[in-house]
Each structure stands twice: as C-alpha cells, then as structure tokens.
C-alpha cells in the first residue's frame, strides 16, 4: 500500500493530468452539451367511491386493471406506467404534440422515444401522483408532459366508454328481456281476470286466497320490479357513458400544471451523472496506470518489503542529500 501511495505522490503531475486536467474540460463540456430541464406535474386521483357505488367506476367491476388493494395513486401510476410502454400511446402523445403546434417531426420523435426512459411516474401519498419529464428544452418538457396527461386521460375515457358501452349493450338486452317477461306476465294476469269475472279488487296484494291468481300477481310484480331496476341501471350506464370524459377529468385532476422544476447545468441530474461517469472513468484509468507503474517498478522502495524479501533488517534509511549537503 505504501508503495502505491509513494508512486502516486512521486508521479502526482501525471495523475493530476489524468484525474483533473483531462476530465475537467470533458465534464464541463458534458454539463454544457447535455443540459437538461425537468418539468413536473402533480395529479390528484380520486377514490372511485367518490362517485357513489352505483357508477361503474366502483368496485370489482369498475375501471379495468384497478386493484382495490392499492391506493388510487398507486393504481393510477401503475396504469400510466403500463401505457408508457406501448407504442400506440407514444404515437398518440406525438400526435397530440403535433396538434398543439410542435411541427418538427424529428424533434417530436426524439421526445416521444425518450418518454419511456425520461418520464417518471411516482405515487406520492394515497392520492397524489407526481409525474416528471426531462429533456433538453424547457418548453418541450412541459409540452410533452401536457400532451402525455391529455392522452392518458383520453385513454382512460376511451376505456371507460368502452366498458360502459359494453355494459349498456348488456343492460339493454336485459331490459328488453325483462320488458318482454313483464308484458307476458301482465297479459297472463289480464287473461286470468277476464276469464274469471267477480274477483276481489285487491289484486296487487297477491293474497287473494286463489293460488293461481296470487302466483300471477306476484310474478307480474316481480317482473315489473326487475324491469324498473334494469331500466335504472341502464339509465345510469348511459349517463356515465355520456359523461365519461367528465368523470375521468374529475377523477384525475391536475393539481399543479406542468412546469419546470429544475433546469440549466444541473437539470434532472443526468448531466451530472455523465460528468461523474467521465470522472469515474478517469479514476479507473488512473488506477490502472498506478497499478502498472507499481507492477513495473521493481526497485527498493518499501522498507517492510525489503526486510520481508531478504529476511534481513533495514538498519536505517538515509534521506537523499540536497545539492548543498553532498560531499
């Protein structure tokens, strides 16, 4: 060890060049060339129960992929992270940016290809999702973030609409069937009444004392109730479908609009990381060079090494005499 340190200090100018003079301009150039900006935004995600249990946003049959054991923020972050891995989502963000006025296709492509790497989605508490995006131009960062959020909300809306459409179609068929059953029950009841004149007037109670009549009355009542319930559900689903966009925008509110939070030389820290990598590489080169020098140096330097290898004591070390002291 002493040998390494001694050689390091002996050739300190060389090591200074390797460790400082060479990497410093490269690091500075890295900081300047790879300047980054970081835009950030916060989204508040409502718990689906906020809309009441009757909507399809709620419960196990609610939003697809919604895990009831995670917080809303975690669910939302997970969903957005998954979307970010899809090409269609990224293209949609690109289209949105083009629509917002970013005309340079090359720049757009560069930005959207960097989204999976540079866009970070982090749940921050139970309902807050922090989204950050880093790029080389401040305006592009915020635009990309805005476009991403809009596309994300559009995707959620589309998913909700598709789900609601499916349930609406299903409910419509259910209502039609219930309607048919109710009509049939009513027809059967009316037929029975017309065939048996002089029946008591309290038909709706279902306790006429005539078993056949009671059964017909009860069945007609049940079919009416079912129909009413299904119609109500259908109405709600149709409403949700119509207001899906509003639901999504309300459930995922942008609390802080996209804005630049870090910029310039430091930016998101990636330029600093690059500078650190340059410096680490310089340290690596210096370490290899030092090891090489030590390996090549077979001369007597280290007292302990000498004593160990020759098995004789080192009686004294005599310092190098200065020019004035020499005799």
């Amino acid at each position: 060890m002493a040998r390494y340190v001694d050689i390091l200090f002996r050739h300190w100018t060389r090591f200074a060049v390797i460790l400082f003079l060479l990497p410093t301009p490269i690091s500075i150039a890295t900081l300047i060339y790879f300047r980054t900006y970081q835009a950030a935004t916060d989204i508040w995600v409502e718990n689906p129960t906020y809309f009441g249990s009757s909507t399809n946003l709620v419960g196990s049959s609610g939003i697809s992929g919604w895990n009831q054991y995670l917080t809303p923020a975690q669910n939302e972050a997970d969903e957005l992270n998954q979307y970010l891995q899809t090409t269609s989502f990224l293209y949609a963000v690109g289209d949105r940016m083009a629509a917002d006025g970013m005309s340079d296709a090359k720049e757009r492509n560069k930005l959207i290809t960097s989204i999976p790497k540079n866009l970070k989605v982090t749940p921050n508490g139970s309902h807050l999702v922090a989204i950050t995006f880093s790029c080389s131009l401040a305006s592009e960062c915020t635009e990309t973030l805005k476009a991403t959020i809009v596309v994300f909300q559009d995707r959620l809306t589309e998913a909700l609409k598709a789900q609601e459409q499916l349930s609406t179609t299903f409910l419509q068929s259910q209502v039609a069937a219930a309607q048919q059953r109710s009509n049939d029950s009513e027809v059967a009841l009316q037929k029975y009444i017309s065939e048996h004149p002089g029946l008591p007037l309290t038909l709706t109670s279902g306790q006429t004392g005539i078993p056949q009549l009671d059964q017909l009355v009860t069945r007609a009542q049940q079919d009416r109730d079912t129909l009413t319930q299904l119609q109500s559900q259908l109405g709600q689903a149709q409403y949700t479908f119509a207001a899906a966009d509003q639901f999504i925008r309300t459930s995922t509110k942008v609390i802080d609009n996209p804005g630049i939070t870090a910029g310039g030389f430091l930016g998101d820290g990636s330029s600093l990381k690059r500078a650190a990598v340059v410096w680490l590489a310089a340290v690596g080169v210096a370490a290899v060079y030092l090891a090489l020098l030590v390996w090549m140096d077979k001369t007597a330097r280290d007292v302990r090494e000498l004593a160990g290898r020759l098995s004789v004591p080192v009686l004294a070390t005599v310092p190098l005499l200065t020019a004035k002291e020499r005799f």
Partner: peptide, 11 residues
C-alpha cells in the same frame, strides 16, 4: 542489514 540510501519519500 540493509541501509536504504537516498530515500526521497513524496508521501
């Protein structure tokens, strides 16, 4: 024994 002459430690 050995006498190490002209030592010039930079450390």
């Amino acid at each position: 024994g050995i006498i190490l002459n002209g030592t010039e430690y930079r450390t």
